[in-house]
Design a protein around this nucleic acid. Sequence first.
RNA 1: UCCUCGGUAGCUCAGUGGCAGAGCAGUUGACUGUUAAUCAAUUGGUCGUAGGUUCGAAUCCUACCCGGGGAGCCA
Length: 497
Amino acid sequence: MTYIKHLKDHVDQEITLKGWVYNYRSSGSLVFVEMRDGTGLTQCVVAKDDVSEEAWEGATSLKQESSLEVTGKVKEDERSIGGYEIHVSDVKVVQIAENYPITPKEHGVEFLMNNRHLWLRSQRQWAAMRVRNEIIYAIHNFFQGRDFVQMDSPIFTGNAAEGSTTLFETDYFEDKAYLAQTGQLYGEAMAMAHGLIYTFGPTFRAEKSKTRRHLTEFWMIEPEMAYYDLEMNMDLAEDMIKAIVKAVLENRQKELEILERDASVLEKVVSDSFERMTYTEAVDILKSDETAQMLDDMAESRRQEKMDLEKEEEKIKKERGSAKKWRKAQIDQRIKDISARVDQIEEDLRNIPTWKESARNFEWGNDFGGSDETVLMKQFDVPLIVTHWPAEIKAFYMKRDETDKLALGMDILAPEGYGEIVGGSQREDDLETLKERIEEEELDQEVFEWYLDLRRFGSVPHSGYGLGLERTVSWLCGLSHVRETVPFPRMMGRLHP
RNA sequence: UCCUCGGUAGCUCAGUGGCAGAGCAGUUGACUGUUAAUCAAUUGGUCGUAGGUUCGAAUCCUACCCGGGGAGCCA
């Protein structure tokens, strides 16, 4: 058995492929089978005269997603997808598929999500999963190469640690258990044993968020490093992100092409230094005249784009009347795209004044809202690291600076509107200070006793962060929604399949 | 929880008070280079659900259900 990925090594040889029908065309005594085998796509050409009667019968009975074995000679051919095609000498049908619901036409999100188990076979989904795999591999490579030990934090936890987010509650032998929203506190314990560790696993949030950036179950990578301060923490995170992007650019070129991802914006992420600024500096940018001007310019260019699109729509609508069938279909598709874009522009135009207001009147001490993040990131094309946050809006375990007002936290915002992909900090390592924080936050000290022990027995400065895997995949693939970055996404209102 | 848009054939949609429609998919047939093949014929309907208004409702009104996008919260 040969895989499609390796066809280039078998030109003019007879090989056997095993896979599925991706698309099917027939033309009298010729049958064209676009075949996929999990490693790629290729076209198989079956000519009636070249095969047995039985094989011909099999070939003509094929339908989309039928499973089959094909034997034939590999030929280079420009006309064929992938540059090679198979001149078939034998076809063995494994199973003739029933009518496959996902046709080569467009479909709505709800339908595709209901058929997620089948949608995974489609090109774009296939490519996204390959990129996800590459990212996972690159992360392990990066940390293992630096002598980090991968360790696992528990998924069942006995208490709702930070208190802020809503957690999933489960019955644990008549006791309450919560699904972990982070493994960080456990990560700190493990770092005190091994120095450098990282966790890689699922986390859960029961927030009723219905946006393109949220899942109820998502994968998080959380390194935790003994004797690391905030600066070292940032350097590590930047190096890690660069290593991930570099690996994807080097090894998943074809997948990025399928996803129509502009690689040049990713190349900049590898070559250029990330932006770094304090929360206070970021607030100054938000409130600046330049930002207000930028938003005005943005509104103006949106209005211009809308006018251009409307002109185009008018023009092709006139053409449609006398157009041939395929052109008509093309026009209909374009009209759909235009109206979707116009809807988006209209929403932007409604939002921009609010964004402007929110940025201009931003008060030091508040957390950034979604629009503030967007406005901020419009000005950068590499990730931005924001540090030194008002302590009140950050978690109790973050160490504070000399002023006691600022938390030594760092958030990394991805460019192109993909939002926060990393959140981290230097941790509070002083026992008494940490006890005070727990009291201030009105948390139950008893459940944190084990955590406080880490400060009683050889406390050291240490830092760590969490990277959201799905948001990273979404960003690198240029996807508009995290639901396409994991095989079976779990989100509000979606538990099946 | 709130704001906003939507639910019509297997799929994507048109239809805004007067006979339930198109393209694709399916089925049957034609075609030796197709690329979402093409061409001809053809099957397919609980118009989200329940009430109401009307001579007449997919269309108007009310409530509810489901989904998309967003806010809050976050990775």
